[in-house]
Design a protein around this nucleic acid. Structure first.
Length: 932
RNA sequence: GCGGAUGUGGUGAAAUUGGUAGACACGCCAGACUUAGGAUCUGGUGCCGAGAGGUGUGCGGGUUCGAGUCCCUCCAUCCGCACCA
């Protein structure tokens, strides 16, 4: 039996468990296509289920999207709000390498834990639509899409992807002379030549057109580990695991011809509602630049160096050339006497990552090859250098150096004492290069006296006229490498016959991941799948199967489509379902995906649209990036005497002190350490001595870090749900600050939100029972309610969830002050709040309307402005812009009347100090400013 | 290095269009109530000052009757940079 007191309390644990069960039983969140309602698609970036489980930062975006989903549902939309798992990836594989546990088992366990944690939060996901990228029923279609990409090329006439069979037919008819396509192929051939080629030669040509193709790419190769590494796995030039040297190496890899879509990926940004910051990041990533491709003859060699330049107007300023150390011409042109030094430099450069090479501008390095190029206009001999600031993967891997106009070239020239001819009229280049484009060109023959823009046009025209090159648009965007030498990823639907890649037929999809004895590369450096016995493969065709697997972004590039039709075994998504749901209306996730997932998903969507499978070509109409929730690490200090010092007792000289991070669960509210718990926590603290402060405590310093197990600063949602309830946690996470902003987590503030929910609960529980009054609501209560309706509508419209929560607080505070207990007011408030705090509102609703199965079938309250009209306004009166006093005046006064009323005030005379105002600014309904 | 973002009380923040800076909370101070609670309620709280008042949105400058908001310079911090997801 509950006592009167207990039944009146807000028993969140009981309420939340009860409603989670009822929602599940009643399938409250299961939705089906319903043509009678408008659709709305709200999507979260699905998580990679890591072993660490969820911390409080993960649900932030999910809470926001859940609130919005429920809001749209209350507004009458049929809302698709699904969740799934990006379940292929490196961590599970690395765990497998360490423990031998199959990544599928690890993944399954992690997903179970994620699900448990997600369920605690009361999200309205339709779990019947869950997808997992590592399930064969899912990756069957990832493989199928790969097949489509392999079987397609990009036609520049239709400006879309077309079937490769169409291209082959054209080749057979007329060769490639009249084909306009995105290709790496420079060879021109006619029909006869094409038809006379053997299968291998034909395929080599076709690989240069396919959207998924095999080509050599640069990779980070670690010989000791026998594997390719991500930049992430390389620290200071050596492998993170084991500290082995890493080198740059060319390897045959699958690639995606995303460059074909560069222009459309740019153009599409203008049609979608993303933040300017994110669009700008994608624009910069794609990096469209206009300029010219120019060929320089190498002196005394039968060779040409092709460069791309954005500044053809500065061509007369070229005083040397720099090739990437890996440039294929280097061995050919290097002069005797320089070969040794060049070779050594190449080896050094191979040990640096691209990023290190770009970031390191202080250490200028390079080698002279001993070769010279011929300036195409002046005929001057210009020295050819190699330097690691030139990247092999960008442009042509070579630059024409214009030291007077580019700072890196300038620094290089200064360092190696190369000529710096000045081609800018009246510009001083004695200290630095002049990189602006607003000087007139000088010392440049036919370009003399021209402004930059005109000079560029003229230079390009002349370059083209003399057959030295052509005007060209270049992209920074590179084709995406699509092979991974890993185990835990999608196998390719590819086998090899006579050395040529062939596609596995549709009826044999999926090619399931074969079992292997170890999750490591083979001894001769083949990927892990090469370890699989022939019979371990679900199909075995040709001489061998493809041993690479696909990258993490393969599965995540189309998952949002699969939610529409997750069980379909005949197609990746049925045309009817995709026609109903269309693209994602609201997508919420982290900005770290700006140039990865978000670009690839747009690429695949455009591709599938080109083939006629999708009615839209932009996947995510609106996108919001939630900020990261950071952890507050607890830092303690251990002195050279091996004692732990309280932070407020540190000596001035901290030489020999080291910082250690302490598990934040062991820290009290006053920032002191629970010393007994500390000594039990880790053996290293067992017999530690302390230098305590006057209060006998060891105080820690707090520092903001990424929330991570590694820093012992993780706060999990589970514990907070247990102590305060999911509704409190949901509202508190929203209350923390703007969704997009990064912010440190501090559990302390949660009591404020918890107290608010209790106060809301008390509105209904006055005398030990649930009770609301019937009848008319007071004007004050109606005003409070409609003010809240208006504020919430505006806040949701601009996704300002934090101010939404504070509006509820203000509303409940006011209703409490008014002693409002009116059914109409409280019902409306409960519906308003239900998206934020679904459990408590559902519970209250079941008391208010016992026959209603769920509050989420109600309709959202409508605003009636009539309750908000004001007749007067409290004008702030400023003198010289400083607010001095306030005066309550009717709103219907004219400016002149306002001025008269203000001047008549005794306080006004005081501030006027006997002066006559120079000017009086009156903004009706806003402010009065008197200028003295 | 390149690209993107952010700087407001002791803390998280608000100020949506150039118009009362600090809403709403946390914390803190004072008080009430109590069979002492992780309970509830009341008042106060940017800083300096006894007060009048002064001052205040990272620094410095500018535009304006009026700037957290617009412009310029600088500083600091965070995120991304192509095989982490």
């Amino acid at each position: 039996m509950c006592s009167l007191q207990e039944s009146m309390d807000y028993q969140f644990n009981h309420i939340e468990a009860k409603w989670r069960q009822i929602w599940q039983e009643r399938q409250t969140y299961k939705i089906t296509e319903d043509g009678s309602k408008p659709k709305y698609y709200v999507l979260d970036m699905f998580p990679y289920p890591s072993g660490a489980g969820l911390h409080v930062g993960h649900p932030l975006g999910y809470i926001a999207s859940d609130i919005y989903s429920r809001y749209k549902r209350l507004q009458g939309f049929n809302v698709l709000h699904p969740m799934g798992y990006d379940s292929f990836g490196l961590p599970a594989e690395q765990y497998a390498i360490q423990t031998g546990q199959h990544p599928a088992i690890t993944t399954k366990e992690n997903i179970a834990r994620y699900r448990q944690q997600l369920d605690l939060m009361g999200f309205s996901y339709d779990w019947s639509r869950e997808v997992r990228t590592s399930e064969p029923s899912y990756y069957k279609w990832t493989q199928w899409i790969f097949k489509q990409l392999f079987d397609a090329y990009y036609d520049l006439k239709s400006n879309k992807a077309e079937r490769i069979s169409q291209l082959v037919a054209a080749f057979e008819q007329a060769g490639n002379q009249h084909i306009e396509a995105v290709t790496d192929c420079t060879e021109q051939f006619d029909a006869a030549t094409w038809n006379s080629k053997d299968a291998q030669a034909k395929e080599e040509i076709l690989q240069q057109y396919r959207l998924a193709y095999l080509a050599e790419s640069w990779v980070n190769w670690c010989p000791a580990l026998g594997t390719v590494l991500a930049n992430d796995e390389i620290v200071n030039g050596v492998s993170e695991r084991g500290g082995h040297p890493v080198e740059q190496k060319r390897m045959m890899q699958w690639s995606m011809r995303i460059k074909a879509y560069a222009d459309r990926l740019l153009e599409g940004l203008d049609r979608i509602d993303w933040t300017d910051a994110l669009k700008e990041q994608q624009r910069n990533w794609i990096g469209k630049s206009k300029g010219a491709s120019v060929r320089f003859q190498v002196k005394d060699h039968d060779a040409e160096i092709e460069v791309f330049t954005t500044r053809p107007d500065t061509i007369f300023g070229v005083s040397f050339m720099v090739l990437a150390p890996e440039h294929p011409l280097v061995p050919q042109i290097t002069a005797e006497g320089h070969a040794e030094a060049v070779k050594q430099y190449q080896q050094e450069a191979a040990l640096k990552t691209e990023r290190d090479r770009q970031a390191d501008v202080k250490n200028i390095s390079g080698q002279f090859t001993g070769a010279y190029a011929v300036h195409p206009f002046t005929g001057a001999a210009i020295p050819i250098w190699i330097g690691d600031y030139v990247l092999a993967s960008y442009g042509t891997g070579a630059v024409m150096a214009v030291p007077c106009g580019d700072q890196r070239d300038y620094d290089f020239a200064k360092h190696f004492d190369l000529a710096i001819p000045n081609i800018f009229k009246d510009q001083d280049i004695s200290e630095a290069a002049y990189a602006e484009k607003d000087a007139l060109i000088a010392n440049s023959d036919f370009l003399n006296g021209l402004p930059a823009k005109k000079a560029m046009e003229t230079a390009i025209a002349e370059i083209e006229k003399r057959g030295l090159g052509f005007g060209k648009t270049n992209f920074r965007l590179r084709d995406a490498v699509f092979s991974r030498q890993r185990y835990w990823g999608e196998p390719f639907p590819v086998y090899y016959q006579d050395g040529l890649p062939h596609l596995v037929p549709d009826e044999q999809l999926p090619v399931t991941l074969p079992e292997v004895d170890k999750y490591l590369p083979t001894e001769d450096g083949e990927p892990p799948l090469a370890r699989a016995a022939k019979e371990a493969w679900s199909c075995q065709l040709g001489e061998r199967m493809e041993f690479n697997t696909m990258p993490g972004w393969a599965g995540s590039s189309w998952y949002f489509l699969r939610y529409m039709d997750p069980q379909n075994d005949d197609f990746f998504v049925s045309p009817e379902k995709v026609a109903y749901w269309q693209n994602v209306d609201l997508y919420i996730g982290g900005s770290e995906h700006a140039t990865g997932h978000l670009l690839y998903a747009r690429f695949w969507t455009k591709f599938l649209h080109d083939l006629g499978y999708l009615p839209f070509d932009e996947p995510f109409a609106k996108l919001i990036n939630q900020g990261m929730i950071l952890g507050k690490s607890a830092i303690a200090y251990i002195g050279p005497d091996q004692k732990m010092y309280s932070f407020d007792c540190l000596p001035k000289d901290q030489n020999g002190f080291r910082e250690v991070r302490i598990l934040i669960d062991l820290i009290n509210d006053d920032e002191s350490i629970q010393l007994e718990a500390l000594q039990q926590w880790q053996p290293q603290y067992e017999n530690l001595e302390f230098v305590k402060n006057d209060a006998g405590k060891i105080i820690v310093k707090r520092e903001v870090d990424k929330m991570s197990k590694r820093w012992y600063n993780v706060v999990t949602p589970d514990d907070l749900c247990e102590r305060y309830g999911a509704d409190t946690l949901r509202m508190y996470e929203m209350f923390l600050g703007p969704l997009e902003q990064s912010k440190p987590w501090d559990t302390k503030g949660i009591t404020g939100v918890h107290g608010f929910l209790k106060k809301y609960w008390r509105l209904f529980h006055q005398n030990g029972t649930f009770e609301v009054s019937e009848g008319e609501a007071s004007p004050a209560a109606l005003k409070t309610l409609h003010k809240t309706i208006k504020k919430l509508r505006d806040d949701l419209e601009r996704f300002s969830f934090n101010t939404g929560v504070s509006s509820f607080m203000i509303c409940v505070n006011e209703l409490t002050d008014q002693k409002c207990n009116n059914r109409h007011i409280l019902e409306q408030l409960t519906i308003l709040m239900a998206p934020y705090a679904p459990h408590i509102c559902e519970e209250i609703w079941s008391q208010l309307q016992p026959q209603s199965p769920t509050i989420f079938n109600e309709s959202y309250p409508e605003l009636n402005e009539a309750y908000l009209t004001e007749s007067s306004f409290s004008y702030p009166v400023s003198f010289n812009g400083k607010m001095r006093m306030k005066v309550e005046l009717p709103l219907n006064l004219s400016p002149a009347e306002i001025e008269a009323a203000v001047m008549a005030l005794p306080d006004a005379q005081k501030w006027l100090e006997g002066k006559t105002p120079k000017k009086v600014i009156i903004v009706p309904g806003k402010i009065v400013n008197i200028v003295l």
